[in-house]
Design a binder for these strands. Sequence first.
RNA 1: GCCGCCAUGGCGCAGUGGUAGCGCAGGGGCCUUUUAAGCCCAGGGUCGCAGGUUCGAAUCCUGCUGGCGGCACCA
Length: 523
Amino acid sequence: MTGPDAGPPAEAPSEAVRAERLRAALALRAAGTEPWNVDFDRDATTKEAVQRLVDHEGRDGAAPPPRARVAGRILARRSSGGLSFADLHDEAGRLQLIAERDATPGGYAFLQQLDLGDIVGASGPLRRTRRGEPSLGVETGVLLAKALRPPAEKYHGLQDVEARYRRRHLDLLTTPARRRPFIQRSQIIAALRHELDRRRFLEVETPILQPIPGGGRARPFATHHHALDQELFLRIALELYLKRLLVAGFARVYEIGRVFRNEGLSPRHAPEFTMLEAYQAYAGREAMLELTEALVGAAARAAAEVPGEGETEPTVDLTPPFRRARMADLVLETVGLDVLDRWDDPAGLAAEAGRLGVELPPDPTSGLVLVACYEERVERTLIAPTFVLDHPVETSPLARRRRDDPRFTERFELVAGGRELVNAFAELNDPLDQRARFLEQARLGAAGDLEAHPMDEDFLEALEQGMPPAGGLGLGVDRLAMLATGAGSIRDVILFPSLRRREGDAALPAADGGGRGLGGAAR
RNA sequence: GCCGCCAUGGCGCAGUGGUAGCGCAGGGGCCUUUUAAGCCCAGGGUCGCAGGUUCGAAUCCUGCUGGCGGCACCA
């Protein structure tokens, strides 16, 4: 933290207010009142205090009024002559504090010197005002943390979206209702974990720093380890290490973790996002379909159960079961192109798709025509959750072929809100086939494809050890949170989204030292 | 990366060619049941940054910075 008279340049202009508050805080300290205190033992949240009052009113009124000790942040203040009111907010809700100049002069003086944003503790009897507002009559008040900076505008809050992302703490403290999507997100992840744990999946943690970033097609972030003098990459997927654990003998494993992709940002893409991947030995696609419905359904229920009203509400019903449809049938239905019927005439198919306005790669196979039609014309129209089945082999390098129709794979995606939410398939466990597919990817990489999957001999060695047949799925947790909360942007379900650095932001810390490692003072 | 839109006191907003205003917050005062409390007084911004056009620019033009949205890629 900078010194008392040097705020960060990027946020400095409220210096007048800050200087006034600092002056008041130092005056308090000089008068013997510490502006930043350590402990305050509350005996109720605001919600519990109100309940205490309600319970008391349910009995007959002869008993003395109940008391409470509460703590929280002051977000509104009013006074009316010899009366002083303040709204104290905590994680559970809001409670009005009140004090009379004549009856409780100590509490009155305490409330009068508060600023918006101060964190306080207060104790006294509970009662209702004439308007029926449950209130705590302040007998004693303690300043727990003086706020040198005020909250944002009390009625509208922070409206500027950039400010809301860059100063999320201010947004959330000023407008407590904006915490709800993040509580929902937490409950969604808890529900996913609960469902998997219930099914005896083992939660594991695999490397984020990887020598070979595999398991998907994406450009990675690169970094460097000084002591090893080695290039490392942030993972783009969880897949290859989880499969090694299937080889190792764990029959059901999953990981929920951050993955990193060095690609463009959008309302649906963040450079770091949270993925769930789960692998189940001796299971096939049908088990993954069932597991997906269970996970998504549980997550949606968990989000809906979070109390309060959000600024947005879900527009997609995530209640299973979900519709199942083969990709080829969806294309026939939506685009009017019968790919299966004309499979042996890829040139004719491509010409027909081109007439329909679909952009195609050069010399496409029938499978590539199918995928192009699907991605350009069908996917965005699938609003209600839909399982899209049977992707062609060409675009599914890690999935097993269908035995009854080798043109297609035992793969599916769950699409909802027009976007892919889950990708799952029966995993390829043939090390010879896997090597061939890696070699093909390496060829593409050599030809300049920045997202080509790198060759990974260590992984191939593990596969050669023998990996049981397995079903696997990957689920985009942020997108699931968006659907379950109705958020329009992925930044609305990520607390501190990545933004471009602004001029005037604090300088980079030294490359070594200065940080507080786990081996240091923190533990 | 390309295209479009946006940027005005700490916060929420008005002002589209004549030299910047309102509300909240902050300062001072009044008010003994308020709750977006109310009333009175005083203060605070060279309008994101840098150029240009003009007698005159928050306003028109160019570039830059940041954000948002779209396209492309992906979850």
